[in-house]
Design a protein around this nucleic acid. Structure first.
Length: 498
RNA sequence: GGGCCUCUAGCUCAAUCGGCAGAGCAACGGACUUUUAAUCCGUGGGUUCAGGGUUCGAUCCCCUGGGGGCCCA
């Protein structure tokens, strides 16, 4: 805030700015280009963990870290330096060792939050704390804002607005970043072992298709043309399959212009994979392996401990149910693809499910009824198979049962984690499905899937039979940690506070 | 979209019935050579989210708007 006169700043900000100014005015460096580190906090901790209380070495190291604890007992100062992973190492500054001037400067210049360099011998204090007995110290970077209290969690709002502070203050925030990275890495390595090729498909699209969702729109000046941010990479990945990239995957962001809540973010990370000559059964095996290996690689176990302490088991075989079968069981009457819309409406009204009459059809009602009577109660990992055809315009019809499609949704802890199809590859049927979506759109369904003519052209060049799968990455992290979606995303969208 | 809760010091939170706006940590001045959220003495720090209303008087009650959270759809 360069325009704010320092008089108007809160005391703690003003004090730090004055220290910076004083250091610089005296010819010192508040922000040196570097400091001569010889080791890291983590390495020193690991290398000297065997030292006993009071033991000292002649090994001299130089390390730097953020000051998270500061104690001054007169002619002796203690400072705890923290690295980005939360590892801490104490430094002791004794007047006898660093000298009177250096100690006085340390007391005058250093605040909680600063990055500080110390060089000295490694040993263990009388109280048993591994320490550097500083022979010299140097400011590595001066903090102008005070750290929050480190003994209490930040408020949920502060966590997302200032994630960088959250990362300094809260171990769970630091873990999430690294766990997420480990999960993504595990997924990629798993795909690479299976000879899948990673591609990136367009974010900016002339037609946003491949899912039932409302897109963000934008404008390209050079072509004076409206564009959409993608809602799914599906159609492009299928074009890649047509072109011979027969095992293909993408990990990237999708954007949906819909509500945001504890399980929906307007931009979210999505994994999609397609396998020529696979089907929804091979996709189920693939998905289970991806999730279980990700849990093992990132957490060391398939029985993960959630944020509330609960243990959740992702290991072993997963339950497998069908949509019509499980709905029939829940209702105590047989529901089939032939069940009339009128009867489904009666059942929906009985369950007090609200629906838009002008968008209603057999498939939507069955899915609504299923979510209400079955889906909301699903907790253990469960594949839900064989969806109505109306709601799955990109999925091929079931190989033996008419009226349903070869699609499954994977439910984990009550929410939808992944979905997969035996892909529809008949270009004539695909065109008919798009035509039906167009009718829904004309009737006012703003989530109906848009027709992509170039996609249909691609299909006419013949796409091999294939299985396809999509999984929300943020949701995978939610499933593995029990956190809300905004905790799994490093910098989630936040409205400006003023 | 609807309902409920919430916004106070740098941070986390109090403030009884509408009556001087507080605590812990943090900060400032001082003491202290083994601290682990040290201890001791002293001090300062507020646009109570914004705007309006009621009132002698509003953090508190009412209205409008904004941010955040939860539940429902």
């Amino acid at each position: 805030m360069p325009d704010v006169p320092s008089d108007d700043l809160p005391e703690q900000l003003r004090v730090r700015r004055e220290k910076r100014d004083r250091i610089v005015a005296a010819g010192g460096e508040a922000y040196p280009v570097g400091v001569p580190i010889t080791s890291t906090i983590a390495a020193v901790r690991e290398q000297y963990e065997h030292l006993g209380t009071g033991e000292e070495t002649d090994d001299v190291v130089g390390v730097a870290g953020r000051v998270v604890f500061l104690r001054n007992t007169g002619k002796l100062c203690f400072v705890a330096l923290q690295d980005g992973e939360g590892n801490r190492l104490q430094a002791m500054l004794s007047q006898k060792v660093v000298g009177e001037d250096a100690l006085a400067a340390f007391k005058a210049d250093v605040d909680l939050g600063d990055h500080v360099f110390v060089r000295g011998r490694v040993g263990v204090s009388r109280r048993g704390e591994l320490s550097i007995f500083a022979e010299e110290w140097q400011l590595a970077s001066k903090a102008l804002r005070p750290l929050p209290v480190l003994h209490k969690d930040l408020s949920e709002e502060a966590r997302v607005r200032q994630r960088y502070v959250d990362l300094i203050a809260r171990p769970a925030a630091r873990d999430m970043v690294r766990r997420r990275a480990a999960v993504v890495r595990s997924l990629r390595e798993n795909f690479h072992r299976r000879d899948f090729v990673e591609v990136e498909t367009p974010m900016l699209q002339a037609v946003a298709s491949g899912a039932s969702a409302r897109p963000f729109s934008t404008h390209m000046n050079a072509y004076d043309m409206d564009l959409f941010l993608r809602i799914a990479p599906e159609l492009f990945l299928k074009k890649a399959v047509v072109g011979g990239v027969e095992r293909v995957f993408e990990i990237n962001r999708n954007f949906r212009n819909e509500g945001a809540d504890s399980s929906h973010s307007p931009e979210f990370a999505m994994l999609e994979a397609y396998e020529a000559y696979g089907d929804y059964d091979t996709m189920a095996e693939l998905t289970k392996d991806l999730v279980q290996k990700a849990a093992l690689d990132a957490f060391g176990t398939t029985t993960v401990t959630l944020a509330d302490g609960e243990e959740y088991d992702l290991g072993g075989e997963w339950a497998d149910i069908t949509m019509y079968g499980s709905l029939s069981d829940a209702l105590g009457e047989q529901i089939t693809p032939e069940t009339s819309v009128d009867h489904l409406v009666v059942l929906a009204e009985k369950a007090e499910i609200s629906f838009d009459p002008k968008k209603v059809n057999h498939g939507k009602l069955v899915e609504e009824l299923w979510e209400h009577h079955v889906g909301d109660g699903l907790y253990a990992p469960t594949f839900v198979r064989d969806f109505p055809v109306e709601t799955s315009p990109l999925t091929r019809e079931h190989r033996t049962t008419p009226g349903i499609v070869e699609k499954w949704d994977l439910y984990v802890r009550g929410f939808e984690l992944a979905t997969a199809y035996s892909e529809l590859v008949d270009p004539v049927v695909q065109r008919e499905r798009f035509a039906e979506q167009a009718r829904l759109a004309a009737a006012g369904d703003d989530e109906a899937m848009a027709l992509d003519e170039d996609f249909l052209t691609a299909m006419e060049f013949a796409m091999p039979p294939a299985g396809g799968m999509g999984m929300g990455l943020d949701r995978l992290l939610m499933a593995l940690t029990g956190a809300g979606i905004r905790e799994t995303i490093l910098f989630p969208l936040v409205k400006p506070s003023h």
